[in-house]
Design a protein around this nucleic acid. Sequence first.
DNA 1: TATTGTTATACTCTATAACTATA
DNA 2: TATAGTTATAGAGTATAACAATA
Lengths: 151, 151
Amino acid sequence: MEAANEPTLQDSISDRLGYVLRRASGVMMGALGVALAEIGLRPVEATILILVGANTGCTQSEISRLLGIKRANMVPLMAGLVNKRLIERYPVDGRSFALSLSLEGVAQRDAADAIMLAHERRFEALFSGQDIEALRVALARIAQLDTAAQE
Amino acid sequence: MEAANEPTLQDSISDRLGYVLRRASGVMMGALGVALAEIGLRPVEATILILVGANTGCTQSEISRLLGIKRANMVPLMAGLVNKRLIERYPVDGRSFALSLSLEGVAQRDAADAIMLAHERRFEALFSGQDIEALRVALARIAQLDTAAQE
DNA sequence: TATTGTTATACTCTATAACTATA
DNA sequence: TATAGTTATAGAGTATAACAATA
């Protein structure tokens, strides 16, 4: 391919907040997916391991609500982690289960956490400490606007 | 439901940049989707209309590359817009088409643009002018890390 | 009556492989 | 040999409706 053969399009969209937000999210999630694939986890699975580890005895409905994932969609996710022997379930009452990490689950959680921390660091390196904090605050403020009633 | 009946989970995840980025993106895209649904467009369709309007005569492969959408996935998107008589196609050589907005396409583009602008304004209102500019710059810097080779 | 976990299902978005016809 | 448009297909992610068992 010759250089500069392609007439560059006028990019009248990438100055829009919603668009760069979506693209940035995709870039970061994509990179995290690649990094976590090395230990056989997807981002959502790593997130669940971290939350169960920090909330031993919680239920999968509680995890669902916190992550904004529908109960119905959590079923195969949790079943997969139980199947991989990373999470254990014990009945607390007749309809729900207390979740906890298995020994292997703790190890996988720690590995995932290290990968995710390194991943964050690589992106944070693009900014000053002050800027990264401002970015975090700004994004959290937008995220908290989530008005979606959970079903 | 009684208040404070639910034991609040320890949220050890929403301080992570990748996570809040993903959630913020979802919130903003969700709201945009609702707003654009009133004129029967999805965000990606509105984006394509805007880009074709700003680049009369471009091809759908060029739009694909700019938006990071695979050529194969652009086919039904563009077909839908042509079907709705919003975009017109004229052959430029034996294998590609020059795209342009129809009269109705221009009207829809203008309507979409107004909705998207109002949408941006509502989110920008959460921040100072200085902060919003910093946010835009930060997100653009992350988005530009996109190393994904287009197939 | 409301909630938990579940099944089934559908729709969107994304990804790959392969084909054709053209350049 | 590379590119434009296309088809078919598969995998995620997400949405709703409905059900049984339980609170």
